[in-house]
Write a protein that binds this DNA or RNA. Structure first.
Lengths: 100, 100
DNA sequence: TTGACAGGCAAGTTGTGACTTGCCTATAAC
DNA sequence: GTTATAGGCAAGTCACAACTTGCCTGTCAA
């Protein structure tokens, strides 16, 4: 009776705002909380509060998708996509060669 | 200002019961609703009602992860993992060779 | 044609998760 | 020291999604 694994991972990518945060960190890695807030508002047009983004980042960090590094009063956020590997390993995707 | 794509996909895999259904269809493809209900109870120890599973299957079908085929009074469910490809394409996973 | 079986539809309940609000700590600039 | 900046903590609000409940439709066997 196998248990469901990585519930935190699926919860993390289940929210649209968190997915946009991952997009943003993919575009420019190592941003601070305030940077992310600013760019989400500017580029993606969604006006979320600082606290909301902070909570989203905590969820992403718990899922292992984001690692943080403190430096003085700044905290830099780095993306780590390796946990996503477990998804395609769990439900293998049939290889489909474009031109055999 | 890019829009978030595939919200249905992430919603679908965001629920633990639906992930177990995908596990079950990976193990044995083309099951009917009642078969899935039975095996979820037996093998995975979760006792969900028929209606609950039916609604889960509808969500999975809307995400393109499950396709259905009617035959008489039976409806067979087939898994399709290809939508999962968009996840690893959106946030590329760094290739890490085991032994360089 | 009547009963059993496989599945569908729709309204109601409830728990969880996203977001806010308010206040607090720590580092750096002046 | 004082002030501004970067971030944290915790309780409260609210909406949505999972699940239930009850009834209905369609297919097949007797």
């Amino acid at each position: 009776m196998p248990v469901d694994s990585d519930p935190d991972l699926f919860k993390a990518i289940g929210d649209a705002t968190r997915r946009t945060i991952l997009d943003e960190l993919t575009d420019r890695d190592g941003q601070t909380l305030f940077e992310i807030c600013g760019r989400l508002t500017m580029k993606h047009g969604l006006a979320s509060s600082r606290q909301a983004i902070s909570q989203h980042l905590a969820v992403l960090e718990q899922a292992g998708l984001v690692h943080t590094r403190r430096q003085g009063r700044y905290k830099f956020h780095h993306i780590d996509t390796s946990p996503l590997r477990s998804i395609v390993e769990r439900w293998p995707i049939d290889r489909e060669e474009p031109n055999p």
